[in-house]
Every structure is written in C-alpha cells, then in structure tokens.
Write a protein that binds this DNA or RNA. Structure first.
Lengths: 227, 227
DNA sequence: AATTTGTGTAAACATAGCGTTAACATGGAA
DNA sequence: TTCCATGTTAACGCTATGTTTACACAAATT
C-alpha cells in the first residue's frame, strides 16, 4: 500500500542532536540522511532530493535560513517540506523563518516525540494533497469522502448521505466496535433524538446496497467494520 | 481571476482572543467566522465548510479535541485544516493534538503575528498551482475557458457566463462533490445572496444545453461532474 | 433612442426518494 | 420457555431538488 519511505535530510552541527533525531525518525520508518553544516545540507539536498529537510538555524558555513532561501529559489525544492530547528525562540525569528518558506518552526530543546508528531502531521497533510485523495482502501472496498463514492471491485455503489456517513465512521477505524450511542452522536449529533430502530435500518440498507457483508453486529454493544 | 479568499472558523470562549485573532487574520484577507464553544464550532463548521478551523482546546460544551475528533470522522472534513490553540504547553497534549488529526498546535499566549505566519504557511503548502486558463478535456467533452466554449464530439455548445463558470468549477475536479455553499462562494462570491433554487436552475440549463448528463446530484450534499 | 435578444434570479409548484417510524419476525441467551 | 436485542419490511411525511414560468435588466441590434 505504501510507496517508498519518505526521505528526510537533517542538518545540524551538533552530533548529539543529529543522532537523537535520526534515531527517532528512523524508528518511524523514514529514510534518514544527515548533514553537519549549511553547505553540506545544500549538496546533499541536491543529491538526494529529500521530501523533508530539517534545518538547524545556527550552523557553520551557511545558516539554516540561508540554506532555505537558496533551495526555495530552485524549482526542484519548491514543494520540499522544510522545518526549522532553533534555540532562538523569539517571535521575530519564528515569523522570519516561516516567511522564508518553512513549513514549521520548532524550538530547541526539542522533544523527539513532538518533532516526530509534527513531521508525521506534515506528511499526512502532504499525502492527501498530492493524491487529492483521502479515501479509505479496505481490501477490495474503496470509500472516497471527497467524491462521496463507494467502490467494490471497481463497481460503484451509490449510498445516501446518512448511509455514507455511517459507513465512513465505521470504516475509518476498521475492527473497532462503535456503540450505538457513539454512532448516534457522531452521525446524527447530540441534540437529535431518533428511534431505536433507525440505526439498524440504515445498517441494513448499507449491507443490502454493498452486497458484501462488511459490517458485523456485536450484540449488546454495537457495530464494527470488518477488515 | 483570483480564487475566493480562504475561509477560517475560529473557536474560542474568550472574546478578547477571538477578536484579536479575527482582526489579524482578517487583515491578511481571510474570511473570518467565529464560534464561542465546541457545539457552536461544529454547527458553524457544517454550515460554512471552512478551509481552516482554529480550535481552542479548553472550551465549554465540547473541548477542541472533541470537536476535532467529531469532525474528522465525517467525510466532509477530511481535507479541512485544523490548528489547536492552547495554554497546555506540555508535550503530551501537543502530541495528542497532532495525532488527533490537527495540522498544527500553537501554545498560548499567542502572538497574533506568529499565528498568522503559521496560517499562511499552511495555506501556502496547500496551494495547488493549477494553470487557470487551461482547457479541460474529459472524454468527448472539451471545456475551453479562454474561448469560453464547450465542445461535445466536435459540436459546439453555447453556455452563458454563469453556466460556464459553474460547469468549469465542477469539471476542474471531476468526480469531486462540491457543496452548494462551495459553489455559491466560488461562482457567485461570498457577499452575494441568491435564492435557494438559483443553483438548480443553472444546473438544469447546463444539463439541457449539453444534452449529455454529465452532472450528478448528491442529495443533501451537492453536485459533481461525472468522469 | 427604440427594439430585440438573452442572461440571471425569483417564485411557485411538482416530485422523487431520504430518513424515520412502526409493526412484526427472528434468533440467541438465561 | 421467555426475554431482549437486532433484523426486516412497508409505509409515509418531509425535505431537497427538479421544473417551469415570469420578469428585471443588460447587451446587442436597428
């Protein structure tokens, strides 16, 4: 399902930091490369064409800001994600960094976990943007919230709005059981009051239209989407 | 032919903060809407379908996290940008926030300028550089925005301005569902107020003139161009 | 200017099908 | 068995959309 791992270039002059970040992002499955100063960062960026570049602001040879500025002028690096890493926590630097074309600006001392979360968030957003497609793919079933369309083995299934919303809720976390209350408040909202059988009827219609039985009843508890 | 301004929904229970942020982002040319608690945020989000939602974490009725969670399970809010705003600067909350599906996490006290920079950075990244005046070719249908002409199987179809704009909007992203609100703000503009049936009438005229039924209704949601 | 033609919007009515309810069926657990 | 949770079906009100007509207004033509 996933393509190649995302490639990250980390540039910092402190070996300790390089190591910590490399270790933590490597653990997430990213492909990690490092550089120890501004010039090396630019060289390696051109060589590797990474998806994300993490730049320490204070580096020998060239500062992170300079590196960013140089890279951003090149067409190849317009789309590359850039995160600044810095001990300068003052507001002006941060604004300057972001206006230089960075996508995020993280202050030192860095929590590796926070950095990882931010990296993940950036990639998550990029993914949905590039493919224009945040659809759920579960085996031979595809659920596309943007097109409001369900496809089973390349055959379209047309669902009504509520049916679709309900299916999407379940399918977003396959295997997880959703309580009836939970379903009600998510799909119908908290204030709306509907009868007992309403959910069942919708479930039934979904099952019917889909042909495949991908929704399991957990009696006394709720419903779940089968993997 | 610049696109409409990005629409931002800000939810916070402190009126001062709402005002400061509204003012600063408004200055940047964004279209601003506000909510003062979690429930109102959800309501307005559904109503306005904003491009970005800024959520205070600590709010009455529902917390920002809850709002985010609820919206993210709905098909319509998969692509919406979300920023958390919070006084909780601890690392765990931040990670949790980002993993809830937020795109950024900003600590209070907020510098309006920093927030603005971050908002700009998010939108900058999202921007798709679609050459505006390129003609669309979809099967046997050609839509040429320069000549203002639609051709089906080498037979010309003459559309009026609004009809053309509407068709072009839908056809630019074939398959994607456009909400009625979305269509209104894109084709008619944000300030213009027109009656409920106006869109339908235009859709009808397009369908009539085109002969081919290339526009599908998704009841309760909007319209889409068939691939 | 007067005339004609066409566009965009509103208003009024028609209609399909969505969402819900109600009534009854079924099946498993105690 | 009896009970309770869910399945199933049909019916129906209502809402969102389709359709048509009318009209103000702009644009084009004379």
């Amino acid at each position: 399902m996933e393509g190649r791992p995302m490639r990250i270039l980390i540039a910092d002059d402190e070996p300790d930091i390089l190591e910590i970040i490399s270790y933590n992002l490597g653990k997430e499955g990213y492909e990690i490369h490092t550089a120890k100063d501004g010039n090396e960062a630019i060289e390696k960026a051109k060589l590797l064409n990474p998806d994300l570049i993490i730049l320490d602001v204070m580096m020998p040879k060239k500062t992170g800001m300079e590196v960013c500025q140089i890279l951003r002028t090149q067409p190849l690096f317009q789309q590359t994600l850039i995160i600044f890493l810095t001990a300068l926590s003052d507001e002006a630097s941060q604004i300057k960094g972001l206006e230089y074309g960075a996508d995020d600006y993280v202050n030192k001392p860095i929590s590796p976990k926070v950095l990882t979360s931010r990296v993940n968030a950036l990639f998550r957003r990029l993914q949905t943007k590039v493919s224009e497609d945040s659809s759920l793919v579960l085996g031979n079933i595809t659920i596309d919230p943007v097109k409001f369309m369900v496809t089973i083995d390349s055959a379209d299934v047309v669902l009504a709005k509520k049916e679709f919303e309900l299916l999407y809720l379940l399918a977003a976390k396959p295997g997880r059981v959703f309580l009836r209350n939970e379903i009600l408040s998510q799909v119908w909202g908290n204030d709306v009051i509907v009868g007992d059988r309403t959910i069942d009827v919708h479930i039934r219609k979904i099952r019917q239209k889909m042909g495949v039985d991908c929704i399991t009843t957990v009696k006394g508890v709720g419903y779940k989407f089968d993997v």
